[in-house]
Design a protein around this nucleic acid. Structure first.
Lengths: 136, 136
DNA sequence: CTAAATCCTAGTAATCCGATAGGATTTAAA
DNA sequence: TTTAAATCCTATCGGATTACTAGGATTTAG
C-alpha cells in the first residue's frame, strides 16, 4: 500500500509545481484544495524541503516553492524520500542493501529473483516519470 | 515492504514444488529448512491450501502437496492471496477497486496515472513468472 | 506591534504484523 | 485399540508502524 504520507506529498508537489512562477503557496491552501489534514501536511512539507525539492519563506506572505524544475525531479527520488526503498526486500535493494536474516544463501533464494525483477520494473517506471509528467 | 507471510509462503511453495511426486511434506520439515517459525507457517499453509494451491493429508504420514503444476501457478495469483492487491492504491486496482475518499476526480489525479503505470509493470512481471520459475 | 506563516518536538489513538497458545481432529501404524 | 504424528482452527498478544494532533517557537511583512 502507498502510504498517505507519500500520496499527500505527491499531490502537494504537484500543486506547488502548478503554481510555479507565482508567489509561494501556503500549506493551508494546499491542505484545503487537496483535502489533507493541515498539521499532517506540515510535517510532509518539511520532509520535502529538507530533501531539497522545496524551498520555503517564513512569516507573513511566506510559503513553499519549487527549488528544481519539474522535469528534473524524478519520481524515483521522491518515492525514496517519502516511501522508502523501491525494493520490497532489503536483499535486492541497490541503495539500502541488507542481508536477510533467515536466508542462508541469496544466490539460491527463490524469492530473491522475483523481487529483483519487480524492483527493476518499478525502477524503470520511476526513472522515466518526473514531476512534470504528473502535472498534465 | 514484502510481508514475512508472503516471503515465507513463497519459500514454502517452492519447497513443496521441489518435492513433487514424493510423499507429502510436513510443516516441520519446511520450517526447519527455511528458518521459519512453525506455528506461523501453519497459518500460512492453511491459507495456501484454502486458496487451492496446496492439498493436505492429515494424520501420521500426512503433509502438504501441490494441487496444480508449478507452470500453472502464476505469481500474480499467489501474491494476491498472500500480499493482497497488486496496486498500491485501491483506485487503480483491477480486482479490488475502491474510490479514494480524499480524491474528488480520479481522471485528473496526478497520483493516479503514476500508480497505474506501476501496477501495469508489476502485473507484467507477476503474470510472466510462475512457481516453476522460482524452483530453478 | 501584530498577524500570518513556517519550524520543531513530542505524543497518541488506531491499526497491522509476526508470532504464540492451546487445544480439536484425523490418521497410520504398533 | 491405543498411541504418536500430523493438520486444523480460533483466539490472543506485544511491538512496530501509521496517520494524525498538540502546542508552542521562530520568523517576517506590513
Amino acid at each position: 500500500m502507498l502510504s498517505k504520507k507519500t500520496k499527500y506529498g505527491l499531490k502537494a508537489l504537484t500543486y506547488v509545481a502548478k503554481h510555479q512562477g507565482e508567489d509561494p503557496v501556503q500549506i493551508g491552501a494546499i491542505a484545503k484544495s487537496e483535502n489533507i489534514s493541515q498539521k499532517f501536511l506540515e510535517s510532509i512539507m518539511l520532509t520535502l524541503r529538507k530533501a531539497g525539492f522545496l524551498g520555503s519563506r517564513k512569516g507573513k506572505g511566506g510559503g513553499y516553492y519549487l527549488r528544481r524544475q519539474p522535469e528534473d525531479i524524478k519520481m524515483v527520488e521522491v518515492m525514496r524520500v517519502l516511501e522508502g526503498p523501491v525494493s520490497m526486500v532489503p536483499c535486492v535493494s541497490l541503495n539500502f542493501y541488507e542481508k536477510c536474516d533467515d536466508c542462508p544463501d541469496e544466490t539460491t533464494c527463490s524469492v530473491h529473483v522475483l523481487m529483483a525483477q519487480l524492483r527493476d520494473s518499478n525502477l524503470a517506471v520511476l526513472n522515466k516519470n518526473t514531476l512534470a509528467d504528473l502535472i498534465e
